[in-house]
């Protein structure tokens, strides 16, 4: 069973991990990615960040991504939590946790989910710097990271 949460509140990494394992002794590996807010971007100090999303489409897009991960690897549960609203440096932004029998599938699927989330889920970051507010531009490196999963498919 997979779950997707979009929320303004902080999330509890240990609680999500515990719930994902849920006393299932068949799980041999859990790989977790946590994306954090940095205080620097493009050489400028960032004091706050606001995350906007497209309610409805966000959940659909993330659902399609976790379903694709399930098709590609033999997994025992995926958790995706993404925050929206105002965030401060040090704040966790996103968490992806993947459970599997062995680490190989869990590592790969976790990276796949975050790579696809970055280029396919409708979230937008706006950051406040000493020069004012600005929308964060999409990175070329993110689409390159997504595309490598298509090789040989």
């Amino acid at each position: 069973m997979n779950t997707i949460e979009i929320q303004t509140e902080p999330f509890d990494i240990a609680a999500i991990m515990a719930e994902l394992r849920a006393d299932n002794p068949a799980i041999g590996a859990v790989v977790t990615f946590v994306g954090l807010m940095r205080d620097m971007n493009e050489g400028d100090r960032v004091s706050t960040m606001t995350l906007e999303h497209y309610p409805g489409m966000t959940e659909k897009a993330l659902q399609a991504i976790v379903e694709e991960a399930d098709r590609r690897w033999d997994l025992m549960g995926i958790r995706v939590v993404h925050r929206v609203g105002e965030l401060l440096p040090l704040d966790p932004i996103v968490m992806v946790a993947v459970a599997s029998t062995h680490r190989g599938a869990a590592f790969q699927a976790c990276e796949f989910v975050i790579d696809y989330l970055k280029t396919r889920a409708p979230f937008w970051k706006k950051e406040r710097t000493p020069e004012g507010e600005r929308w964060v531009d999409a990175r070329h490196g993110d689409s390159a990271a997504e595309q490598r999963w298509n090789k040989g498919q």
Partner: peptide
């Protein structure tokens, strides 16, 4: 129908 810039989440 929705229009938006390239996404920047994660």
């Amino acid at each position: 129908v929705a229009f938006f810039p390239p996404v920047t989440g994660g």
